[in-house]
């Protein structure tokens, strides 16, 4: 759980760095996207590892939730969770499942399209298509708003999850206060950055 979570946290930061170029430097965005899409190492090693990481993470998360539910078969009439723990920490399964649903849409939007473009339709390489394709995706209001809401829930997920994974792997020492602070900065800044990108493209459509 912790290792797959930390891996996803690392991936998310990398994903953000690439995406932000779509706002500040469209040519760089095209260049990097093309590299990611046609580099053998990325396509055939890193991509499967990432997909496996996501599957391991949510499969373990669901199994964990089921097991923990069984550990209290008879529930309390009154349970004052807010007195001793954060909402984020108690609802990882809810925020996680929303993020999973979002990933379904996200994979459909970009990944399924890419796979079809490259391996089914077998189109020729086109190193400059990515920027326009991406911006077009954010034209519909409904998709933009789903992206925004999903990132708010991802933020809540990471608010607990990031620091929590250090405790799970046994790190609780003089650096823990720093890890807590970094978790708070990361879990707000990165999702907020993704939200900014989505809104930016929604409000700045390509006009020909």
């Amino acid at each position: 759980m912790a290792l797959s979570g930390l891996f996803l946290v690392f991936f998310l930061a990398q994903h953000f760095v690439i995406n932000i170029t779509s706002v500040i430097a469209p040519d760089t965005f095209n260049e990097w996207s093309h590299f990611m899409g046609y580099n053998g190492l990325v396509q055939f090693i890193l991509q499967p590892v990432l997909i496996a990481g996501v599957i391991v993470h949510f499969a373990m998360g669901i199994a964990l939730e089921l097991k923990n539910n069984k550990a209290r078969a008879i529930k309390y009439k009154q349970y004052n969770g807010n007195a001793n723990s954060s909402w984020m920490s108690r609802n990882m399964i809810i925020t996680g499942l929303v993020v999973l649903a979002f990933l379904g849409l996200h994979m459909y939007d970009f990944w399924v399209h890419e796979m079809a473009y490259k391996y089914i339709e077998v189109n020729p390489e086109s190193p400059t298509r990515y920027y326009e394709e991406t911006v077009l995706k954010f034209e519909p209001f409904w998709r933009t708003i789903i992206y925004v809401i999903s990132f708010v829930l991802l933020s809540l997920h990471l608010w607990h999850g990031f620091a929590s994974s250090f405790q799970t792997v046994g790190v609780n020492n003089k650096y823990s206060a720093g890890i807590q602070t970094f978790t708070k900065i990361y879990s707000i800044a990165i999702p907020l950055g993704f939200i900014f990108i989505a809104l930016y493209h929604h409000f700045n459509p390509i006009t020909h």
Binding site: L64, K67, N68, K70, A71, R72, G81, A83, N84, S85, S86, S89, R90, M92, H160, S164, Q167, T168
Partner: peptide, 15 residues
């Protein structure tokens, strides 16, 4: 014994 798994909510330490 059927106890659940820790998800680091920290409720135990508080109580």
């Amino acid at each position: 014994e059927g106890f659940g798994n820790c998800t680091n909510t920290g409720a135990c330490e508080v109580e």
